[in-house]
Each structure stands twice: as C-alpha cells, then as structure tokens.
Amino acid sequence: MSLISIKIKEAGYEPGETKIQNLEFSIHKGELIGLIGANGAGKSTTIKSILGYIPFLEGDIRLKEGIATAYLPERPVFYDELTLQEHIHFIAAVEELPEEIVKARVTPLLEKFKLTNHLHELPGTYSKGMQQKAMIILALMIKPDLLIIDEPFMGLDPIATKLLLDLILEESQRGVGILMCTHVLDTAEKVCDRFVLIDHGQQLALGTLEKFREICERPDGSLFECFHHLIEGKNHE
C-alpha cells in the first residue's frame, strides 16, 4: 500500500493561473523517488501542493492514515529568537516526544554534523551549510514515515553531502517513503528507485531509470542523457 497517492488535475497560486497539471504518482514504503525537472518546471509547486500550501488545487492527495510526515525545505526556516536546542525542545513538545527518546535520536545527528557545540546559538547566526544541517536534524528527529526533501544538497560541503546521502538511504531502508527534489542528476541516478520528470508544469515521464532508457531507446543512457532526450523531444513536438 502506498504512503501517499498524488493525483493533481491542476494547481496554482491564483484562480485561473495553472502552474502544474496532470500529475499522478504514489510513494510506497521504503521507496525513494526523485522529482526532477528544469528550473521553473513546477517541482516546488508540486511539493507545496502535496503539503497543502497551494490555495487552488483540483485533484486528490491521499495520505495513509496515522503516518508522520517531515519536510526539509530548500531554504532553511527558523524562529528568530530560538536557539537550536530550543527548536529541538519545541518540536519535541509538539510531537509529544519523551526527553530520553529525543536525546537518543538527536545526539548522534548533532555529532555527525558537528553541531553539538552550537546547540545554544541562534541558527540565524549559522553559515548556510550549518543551517541546512540543523534543518536535517529537526526533520529526522520525529522519525517520519514520509520525508519530503527539496534540493537537500544546497549549501552542503562534500563531507556533509555524503553524510546526508547515508542518512537518506538509512531512512529508506527503515521503510520511510522519500520524495526528493534535486538538480543533482548523477546523485539521483545512484540512489533513487523511480523518477518523476516534470516539464512546463506537466508530468513528462514516470518510472525507473530502465523505463526512461526504454522510452529514449538508450539501453546504457545515464539519467542525465535521458533527461535531456525527453525534454528536447517534448520541446520539439
């Protein structure tokens, strides 16, 4: 059974101004789906539609009852007056997580991302990379069943990128369904089970890399090559 089923006939920010249309896919337990497309293709609008942030949506988004969802945005968002420790306490209170569970989950993440000594600082004073790491910790501390990630590698150095990839794969192996929006196609090719390709607000292709290769008639094509073949073929129609 899928954790979430997405059917979007059309969606947008203003009445009559459709940004995305005719999208249909699902995310299953333990599945990592790559949401790919050029800038302005509609990836972020798709994510916001799934999260319920888009005011005008015609379609059906069904979330499995009782599952926890976490969202890791492209641009880190924090409360200006709260330290990282206070953010952790706030989320723990909202999610009704016991202190011992929070400590067991958060401590190793703080150590991995070298933020233990910055717990009592305001995230607004962090570097961009540190802010991204803090957002990762806050997203993963609730042990979500469904994780939605928007451009997770922005601002991360190679070491932190490797750590995040390892965590994403660990979460997937734990059974978490993951939707990851990314421009980093070579990385997506290595870790994603399936891909949703969006172009000009519409779903252009859905499936595994093998399926994309079949559509493109490129048996050994990379995701990068298939991506450009599909986009260029659509634009030349």
Rank of each mutant, 00 (worst) to 15 (best):
C181F: 03
E81A: 15
P152E: 09
K64T: 09
I36D: 00
D199T: 09
E189Y: 09
I142L: 06
T116Q: 08
L51H: 14
I33Q: 10
H87T: 10
D193E: 15
I47V: 13
T208E: 02
L97K: 09
S2P: 15
L110Y: 11
A139E: 02
A134P: 13
I88L: 13
L63M: 15
L3S: 03
N39W: 02
A41T: 04
K29D: 01
Y126R: 01
I215P: 11
I137E: 01
T187K: 14
D193I: 12
L209F: 14
L97Q: 10
I148H: 12
E99P: 00
T46W: 02
L82I: 10
E58C: 03
P108T: 07
G42W: 08
R213L: 02
V94F: 13
K143R: 10
F153K: 11
I54N: 05
I101P: 00
L167A: 09
S2F: 06
E214V: 00
C216F: 09
P76R: 15
E81Q: 15
K114F: 11
L72Q: 12
S49Q: 07
T125N: 11
D145A: 09
I168T: 06
Y13Q: 01
E210L: 14
L35C: 06
F195M: 12
L206P: 03
I198H: 05
R174P: 01
E214N: 10
L140W: 04
G177W: 13
E14G: 00
L122S: 09
M130G: 00
Y53S: 12
L110H: 10
L163F: 12
L63V: 15
F195I: 06
E170N: 06
E10S: 11
E189S: 04
L223P: 03
C181S: 15
L97H: 00
T187F: 02
H228I: 08
G12Q: 07
L23E: 06
H118F: 12
V106E: 01
P76I: 07
A38N: 06
K211W: 05
K103V: 05
S44T: 14
K43N: 02
K29A: 08
D199R: 13
E74D: 15
A11S: 14
D186G: 03
E121W: 08
G40N: 06
I168M: 12
H120Q: 11
I136S: 02
L109P: 10
E31A: 12
D199I: 09
K162S: 07
R75N: 15
D145H: 15
P152Y: 02
P144G: 05
L223N: 03
E232P: 00
E214T: 13
K190H: 12
H229W: 10
F212N: 00
D80H: 15
